[in-house]
Computed example of a mutant assay.
Amino acid sequence: MRTRSRRSLIAGAIISAVLAASLLSSGRVALGSSALNQRTHAHAHAAAMQHVFFILNWLPNVEFAGVWVAQRFGWFKQAGIDMKFESWSPAVHPETDVVSRGGNSFGFQSGAAIAIAAAQKVPIVALYTDTQKSVFGLTVLNKSGINKITDLRGKRIGYQSHEIYVPETMLSFAGLKPSDYKLVPVGFDISGLTAGQVDAWLTFQTNEPIALNMQGIGNHSFRAADYGFNFYDDVLLTTRSLVQKNPALVATVTKLVARGFKYAHSHPILAANLTVNNYFHASTAGPGITAAQNLRQQILELQKFKQFSADKKGRYTGLMKASVWKASINTLFKYGEIKRKPSVTAIFTNTFNPYVNGNYH
């Protein structure tokens, strides 16, 4: 009996083991199906995501804080957008690269470059601007004795060759003739100013003057916007083809970028930290730049942007005016940068801007 019982127990154990194995096997199949379903769902979700590509006209710093805020806060993902970007290099030209790349491509570029491309019949359209006033300016050292723009008479002015129309416009507005000063082609390294090679330097007011201040070098600037230079900078653009084929995507991207910049300008310290921690490390900023220095400069730059990005009511709407685009085009035509004037109404649109109807919340 014991043996039988033993055998019965063994048999029962074997049967139980077989049943357990069967159940476990079934369980594995079920688990496998679940995992497969999850993977299938993930692939389907990935396939449903719309891939959007941004082409930048500078390094990935706070100049594009609106994009970084939208990305890190998950707004793109929530909208079904997978965002990638390409940083600036000498070979990158957003105003033409968006067309050659095609697809869901967006870019950031100056209003001047956009107008020049449009004059050459490049099929692009401006959607939003982070600046209501140009951030260009002519910077001089405090020790130079140059206290007003007309003091630049007889002086050497450093400028980037592709932006000659900026100092020419400013100085003409101030009543100076080309024979009254000497334009000197320079690069982006402002050490030529501190070394005395030139007396003034064409700068981005949100960049080089801040760097000089951080080095303890006293300086002041004449803002281009105060001297007849009416241009937008940091303009979001895309192709006419995408506007026609997928206006819903264009509207979504424009909305998220606008929302991101509004948040960044309202929270510059947070947005600057987010930028340097994820996109613009000290190693990207330049050799010898510490993390603390990089963060400090990015905070100061984003705070400086406020005076250029806010409208007269202190809002960050990104809305554009035909009168500004017309003035920009006329300036480029006057100084020979374009041979034909593109249509003002064709070069930009506020249609996709979420604040176009005054709904600013």
Rank of each mutant, 00 (worst) to 15 (best):
R2S: 14
S16H: 04
L19R: 03
L24N: 10
L24Y: 02
L24A: 10
A30R: 11
L31S: 12
A35D: 12
L36K: 09
N37K: 05
R39Q: 10
R39L: 11
H45N: 09
A46I: 14
F53Y: 15
W58S: 11
P60F: 14
P60Y: 12
V62F: 07
G66H: 13
G74I: 03
F76G: 02
S89R: 00
R101Q: 14
G103S: 13
F106A: 05
F106D: 00
F106N: 00
A119L: 08
I124Y: 02
I124E: 00
Q132T: 05
F136N: 08
I146Y: 03
N147Q: 09
K148P: 05
T150L: 11
T150V: 09
L152P: 00
Y159D: 09
H162V: 15
V166I: 15
V166Y: 07
T169Q: 13
M170A: 07
L171A: 07
S179E: 02
P185G: 00
S191C: 05
A195P: 07
D199W: 08
L202G: 09
Q205L: 14
T206N: 06
T206W: 05
P209C: 11
L212E: 08
G216F: 08
Y232I: 07
V243T: 15
A248E: 04
V250P: 01
K255V: 02
V257E: 01
G260W: 12
Y263K: 03
Y263D: 06
N273G: 05
N273Y: 05
L274G: 05
R296A: 15
K306V: 06
Q307A: 05
S309I: 08
L319M: 08
M320I: 09
A322F: 04
W325M: 04
K326G: 08
S328C: 12
F333K: 01
G336I: 10
P342D: 10
V344R: 00
F352V: 07
G358C: 15
